[in-house]
């Protein structure tokens, strides 16, 4: 950051904003500036990304104000908030929003907790650490679609592994994905299986960047290992936790793939409908384009609510 400041001052020293310099010199300065010279590098990707992301969002917003449905063309002559009103009054929308929230918070916090536990477990002087770490992280390499198939089989009411365990312990077998009361928990569990390894890696990197002498000092003071971790090491992982949490929430927002792939159908298991699945179902199955666009806009607002504090936090830390 310090280097940044110095370059800015040197730039402003050359900056031809003083009076008495004609416009041709100004133009030459401008064309020779780093801004113009570097613009092909960031400009081309920026235009491609900008059209796709911000153009897409804008178009989506515009569609959400219309009554666009079916195979007709969207008409932008009368724009209103009708679709948003309809969504907020809709029972299935409210259920999806609530389940979305539970999924986001539940999945992120459990993955973070388990990831931290695994990181400390492996950090604490263990053999074959690299191999174990690779295996813990292996589910990350799989797609949502594949993970969904693996867990569909694990949760199978017939001969699934989980029910074999449950019946071996003397309980009745459970229809994990068929029971609306536990289906969401089952989905969260499967997603935690896939992504807690990621949180572990982030925390491990954070742990390894801490200096060794803190541990030694705590030991001299007579603190136990557990105490050292809880009191001294973990509080220093704040930065790592925030980064990991944001990426995990990002995965949670993409849970559509997982939910679709479980049933192979627009409708996920009962009790696990989230905004993403609701939106795709309304738009692409029923042709309710405007209604789907309105739900999508609200989903976007939800993720912006997650990301804005993170960006501000990063900016305050000076690490943006």
């Amino acid at each position: 950051m310090t280097t940044h400041d110095t370059t800015e001052t040197t730039e402003s020293a050359v900056d031809p904003s003083e009076e008495g310099i004609d416009w041709q010199t100004k133009l030459r300065y401008f064309l020779n500036s780093d801004f113009v010279r570097s613009s092909p590098y960031w400009g081309i990707p920026f235009i491609i990304m900008g059209i796709a992301v911000y153009g897409g969002i804008g178009y989506n917003l515009a569609i959400s104000f219309t009554d666009y449905a079916g195979i007709a063309r969207p008409s932008f002559s009368s724009l209103d908030l009708e679709m948003y009103r309809r969504a907020l009054a809709d029972e299935s929308f409210r259920a999806a929003a609530f389940q979305n929230f539970v999924l986001l918070v539940g999945f992120t916090s459990i993955s973070l907790g388990l990831g931290l536990f695994l990181a400390v477990l492996l950090d604490y002087g263990i053999r074959y650490k690299e191999t174990i770490q690779t295996i813990y992280l292996l589910p990350m390499a799989l797609s949502f679609v594949v993970t969904a198939q693996l867990w569909l089989w694990m949760y199978s009411p017939g001969n699934g592994v989980l029910n074999i365990f449950v019946t071996a312990l003397g309980f009745d077998s459970i229809d994990w994905l068929g029971d609306p009361r536990i289906a969401l928990a089952a989905v969260i569990f499967a997603l935690v299986w896939q992504f807690s390894g990621y949180a572990m890696v982030v925390f491990l990197a954070g742990l390894q960047s801490l200096p060794d002498d803190q541990f030694e000092a705590a030991k001299v003071d007579g603190a136990s290992t557990t105490k050292t971790y809880v009191r001294i090491i973990v509080p220093q992982l704040k930065q790592a936790s925030v980064g990991a949490a944001v990426v995990l929430m990002l995965f949670a927002l993409k849970a559509f793939d997982f939910l679709y792939a479980i049933t192979g159908n627009y409708r996920p298991p009962n009790g696990t409908d989230i905004l993403a699945t609701l939106m795709v179902r309304e738009a692409f199955q029923y042709g309710q384009w405007a209604y789907g666009a309105a739900i999508a806009t609200m989903l976007l607002l939800l993720s912006l609510a997650v990301i804005a504090p993170y960006l501000i936090f990063q900016h305050r830390q000076g690490s943006l």
Partner: peptide, 14 residues
């Protein structure tokens, strides 16, 4: 950076 966090559903209809 915001582009990273946009859920794809928000651009799907367009």
């Amino acid at each position: 950076l915001i582009g990273i966090f946009v859920p794809y559903q928000a651009v799907l209809v367009p």
